[in-house]
Design a protein around this nucleic acid. Sequence first.
DNA 1: GGTTGGCACACTCCAGGTGAGAGTGCCAAC
DNA 2: GTTGGCACTCTCACCTGGAGTGTGCCAACC
Lengths: 347, 347
Amino acid sequence: MTGTSYLSDRRKAILKAVVEEYILNGQPIGSEELLRKYSLGCSSATIRAELAALEEMEYLSHPHTSAGRIPTEQGYRIYVDHLLVLSPVSFQEEEKISQVLNRQAQDLRNILAEACRLVATISTYTSLALAPQANQQVMRHIHFVPVSAKQALVILVTSLKVIQDQFLEVSAEVSEEDLEYLSHYLSRRLLGKTPWQCLQELPVIREEQPARLVSLLNQLSTVLHNVFLYEQSERLIVEGAENLLLASDFRNSFKQRRLADALDRRFLLQDVLDRHLTSRNLQIFIGQENEVVEMHDLTLLAMPFEASRYAYGALGLLGPMRMDYAKGIRLLACVTGVLERALSQEA
Amino acid sequence: MTGTSYLSDRRKAILKAVVEEYILNGQPIGSEELLRKYSLGCSSATIRAELAALEEMEYLSHPHTSAGRIPTEQGYRIYVDHLLVLSPVSFQEEEKISQVLNRQAQDLRNILAEACRLVATISTYTSLALAPQANQQVMRHIHFVPVSAKQALVILVTSLKVIQDQFLEVSAEVSEEDLEYLSHYLSRRLLGKTPWQCLQELPVIREEQPARLVSLLNQLSTVLHNVFLYEQSERLIVEGAENLLLASDFRNSFKQRRLADALDRRFLLQDVLDRHLTSRNLQIFIGQENEVVEMHDLTLLAMPFEASRYAYGALGLLGPMRMDYAKGIRLLACVTGVLERALSQEA
DNA sequence: GGTTGGCACACTCCAGGTGAGAGTGCCAAC
DNA sequence: GTTGGCACTCTCACCTGGAGTGTGCCAACC
């Protein structure tokens, strides 16, 4: 009872109350208010003693002598690890989200962007979506389409519902039949292979083909690189940055700018998310637990999802440390659930 | 010289100096400072008299008795209409922008998004890009592609470099040959037609086709609607909203929120831009000249561009009234120039 | 021993006051 | 028409005092 690590039930209740009250109102909370709103079965003096003990344990802190208590990062940590009660996702919620996302069969990028926007809107915070890595997909379809005398369109579809289409320049010597022939030929050679394997295969194929098709194959190689580079570098989608930037308890203009810049540096965020995606469970990064310095006073919830076999992406929610964890986690669980079902439909 | 509308050369010089100084520093400017920084050939007392006259004419205003002058909206108006000197766009600039935008032949949406991002980044304000209306394009290509046993991909390409691809569900009865056949058949019937004409044609075509293809044609109709609805509703791209929201001279949190919301209501903005796009020249909306209330203390520069014959889009720059007009206008001119060249390449 | 009411103390926050600084407007002189 | 001089006005930054709030401690109690 007197130790610094063991938490009596009453202390747990008080800690929980402080955290939830602070999440709700964003105001430091004192012993009297706690007494009034929660039936803790003791007087305010006792609560004060307990609050002092919780502060001693570094779960709570004092903005100044005469303000109430607010949770520390460690306080939030105890809260999410031990005190948070998650109610299951309701059918209505899931149904509603499902309807929004499944409006029409789209490609991965659109689905993710849509999901991201949804999470940002509902949570009123910032949402991140990380697409699975490009090398975890195989080529499902490849087709050249004549568009004009000078241009053709190449369309690649992968197992991850990624559609990549790009205009190619075609010299006058290349006929429509050539394009048709190349479509079939490349299909035979490349389908079922990863983009990386395709890239390795291309030089071999180039050898076997007539000279007039070489330029086309070179351009295809660029497109395949794009599947890596572009999709790779643009794997991260961020929505609702303004929600966070305009949040009322975040009025430090310098920090705002820094955060805005950090959210723009997609590479960095992407890299961090990737490295933490080894676990297949929800991950919570509170304050300084975030690698990115600009997020040191924010919380990131990151929920992985399986886009297809062995291909994992993640959906994230970035908000203030005093975000509504229960709601956030439920929202992510709900959306990733819908996402997994939408993506698992054989493409 | 004493009238309220005629501007002597000295008054012009003073007004210009006040506007440019205010654009530069964002601080009200007084007679002494004006004297120090600009060689106006008279004393500060004379300048004060002129400032008073310009205030009388409502080109300048006084935040309070003892502050310097700042331009009124009408002051800015005079400035952009008569006092602003535009230097031509340099080759380096144009070349640099051209390189960024022409990295690879992309579809309209990507090019516009890229251009928009570029303008936002360079200007450090907010950039808008409005794609041409969907009915100003004709179908250039239509193709069904079998992707799996249950799914096909339909690809539409229009004269505006718009690529629309979407997964369709295919019943077991439909063979790959059917898809091939349908691609050719629909090409014959629909190419060269506007999306709207295509939509009208579809019911007719449906009558002529075997029953097992009806579902496919219905889904195609949905896709075509999307060319209208989606492309129509998402014609506006906004980039760099955070630049404006975090701008230091814009610290009213209520207004920030309102502006953020307004920028999210794409329909509204789109509509306004469309209505003003009758002119083919740069348009400048200063403060209350903006229809959208939330922009009443901002300036919008809107530069139309011709995406293809008779199909006009616009590129916009939204910033504070004290934005650098010369730079902004040059930037828009430069980017729309590059854009027109990129899009005019026959798709 | 844990719990309680009482009370002094510490601290913030807001309102009101003060003085420096800046820029004007006016006026008389040129 | 232009100029220097000067009183006036207003903001901004700083300080100050009082109300309010919540704590920490203590002695008394169960």
